[in-house]
Amino acid sequence: MNYQVEFQDVNVSYGSDIALQNINLQIPKNEIFGIIGPANAGKTTFLKAINRTLEFIHNAKTKGDILFNGTNVRSIRNVYELRRKVGVVFPLPVGLPMSIFENVAYAPRRSGIHDKYELEELVQRCLQQAMLWDEVKDRLHMLGTKLSGGQQQRLTIARALSHSPDVLCLDEFSIAIDPVTTMKIEDVLSELKDEMTIILVTNLVQQARRLADQTAFFNKSELVEYGPTEKLFTSPDNQLTYDYVTGDFG
C-alpha cells in the first residue's frame, strides 16, 4: 500500500518538553484522517512536523522518520516545494495583508501560473470551494485583513486549496465559523477527498465521526490508538479513547 504520510518512531521535543512520543502511523492517500484529543496532546505539532515548519521553532527537535509520498521529509532539498504540497489551515484566521485575490493567487503564481485568465479561474474555484465566493466576488481587491473572522478563515481555506496540495491539513478550522457554514465546508471536504488527502484535527469529536475515514486519538504527546472511525467511536481498544469519545474524559 502506498501511503501519503507515514510516521516512523517520531519524537518531537521543545527543549525539555516532549511534544510527541513514539508516533507510528500511516495515512493512506485520498482519505480523510481525523485527529482528536485534548489540548496539549501534540496535534498541532504533528501537523507542523509534516511540512517542516517546526524548524522555525528554534528549540524544536525531531527524531525518527516522516515519509511524505514515500520520501523522507528530512532528505527533501527544496523545502518550499514540500510546503506547497501541504496546505495548512490554522485555528485562527490569518488574512495576509494583501488583497483577497492576491491572498489566493499568491501560491499559484509562485509555482509558475502567470496567465491572468487561468489565475482568475483558479481563484474563483478555490473561493467557491471555501464557500466564500458569493460574499466577496464584488470586492476581490479589498484587503484580506478587512474581512470578518469567519470570512478570513474561509479565505485561509481557499488559500490552502490554491496550490492544489497533495495533503490538506485543517487545524480546528471551524472555531471561527458559524455552524451552517461549517456544515457546507464539511460537504466540500468530503468531495475534495478524491483530489487530495485531508488531515483533520478537530476539537469537535462528532465532526471527526461525520467526516473521517480513520481517526486517531492523541493524548499527552502519545498516539493512544487509531483505526477506522466507526470502530474508534463504538468499540475502541483503549479505555481512555472510549471515555474521550463518549464525553466521559476526566
Binding site: E81, R83, V88, V94, Y106
Partner: peptide, 13 residues
C-alpha cells in the same frame, strides 16, 4: 503576529 509568518511559510514562501 506569528500566525502571519506561519501562514506565509506554509504557503511555500
Amino acid at each position: 503576529p506569528d500566525s502571519f509568518r506561519e501562514a506565509g511559510i506554509a504557503l511555500g514562501a
